[in-house]
């Protein structure tokens, strides 16, 4: 090793200098990939979105046409606005549900009870199963629909979301939109449960770093479990809420209407310019949502140090 540095004509390497040198070496593979497979495509995607692209035998002809791809996506294309609002509304509706649900389940799974190990492994199963192609195919299963008609078990979900509870809430004077949101949440329970595996893991890991002394002290002072949750658990895991919101949003990229639309526009209709413009509008929309949520959540978050 020494002769290697001597070859560079540097006899005395400081420790820091040596570390920095190896740091660059270690980051290098990532850096090459970052430039080649991220930054260049990222920039050229923006360039494509501003141009019309025609492919012929010689290659591609890229012509700068300004913002007309964006205009076309937003005003001419029939499915873009629908897909965009659908995927964003979907995101805005399910992100809070997933985060609240996974926090709740993480608190439950952290308590001691018989069969906890089994329950944990069941709840993390969706980490494996509910991603990509399986989730897509699952919705189209006819047999499932048939069995659901036959079996009482299949109606379990519908029973929960059915009208009596809804009517009671409406009569009790609860705001109609809140009731709709709640019943919608019950209808989505399968989707929510299957998408919150990683989030439960993150919350559970966070809860386990809270020192037991805090709970003991609060118990001595006479706090109930409910109070302990709101005064100790919730503030201590609140930084993770932001992490989970971001994770849930990036996790939804792989399975929504927008992704499908961009893929069809690009690869089935070969309209690369329009597809890039769509992808950029989608990206900007997500950045705005992420920015707003980060701002709102980080104002409320409690940091220990």
């Amino acid at each position: 090793m020494k002769s290697f540095f001597a070859a560079f004509g540097k006899k005395q390497w400081t420790h820091e200098g040596q570390k920095a040198f190896w740091g660059v070496i270690y980051v290098l593979p990532w850096l090459i990939g970052f430039l080649l497979f991220f930054l260049l495509p990222f920039v050229s995607s923006f360039r494509y979105s501003l141009s019309s692209i025609k492919a012929n035998a010689d290659g591609m002809i890229i012509q700068f046409i300004g913002f007309s791809n964006y205009v076309e996506a937003l005003t001419v294309n029939t499915s873009f606005n629908r897909a965009l609002t659908e995927s964003i509304v979907n995101m805005v509706v399910s992100v809070p549900l997933i985060v609240i649900f996974s926090l709740f389940i993480a608190v439950l799974l952290n308590q001691k009870f018989f069969g906890r190990a089994l329950a944990r492994s069941v709840f993390f199963l969706p980490v494996i199963l509910a991603s990509g192609v399986i989730a897509n195919l699952e919705t189209g299963s006819l047999v499932q629909a048939l069995t659901e008609q036959n079996a009482v078990a299949g109606n379990f979900v519908q029973v929960l979301g059915d009208s009596p509870l809804e009517r009671i809430m409406l009569r009790a004077g609860v705001n109609e939109s809140i009731v709709l949101y709640l019943t919608d949440a019950v209808d989505r329970i399968n989707q929510i449960v299957s998408q919150s595996g990683v989030q439960i893991l993150i919350f559970l890991a966070g809860i386990q770093t809270i020192s037991p002394q805090l709970y003991e002290a609060s118990k001595v002072e006479g706090a109930t479990g409910y109070e302990a949750f709101w005064k100790i658990t919730f503030p201590m895991v609140s930084p993770l809420i932001l992490v989970n919101v971001i994770f849930t949003i990036i996790d939804s990229f792989s399975r929504n209407a927008m992704t499908d639309l961009i893929k069809t526009t690009g690869f089935a209709n070969f309209n690369f310019g329009l597809a890039s413009a769509m992808a950029w509008i989608y990206f900007l929309a997500i950045m705005i949502i992420l920015g707003i949520t980060s701002y709102l959540v980080s104002r409320k978050v409690f940091y220990q140090d």
């Binding site: 497979f37 494509y48 690009g266 890039s276 992808a279 990206f283």
Partner: peptide
């Protein structure tokens, strides 16, 4: 943070 769809085509 960047959706893979954005850079897929390039």
């Amino acid at each position: 943070l960047v959706p893979p769809t954005t850079i897929l085509i390039p």
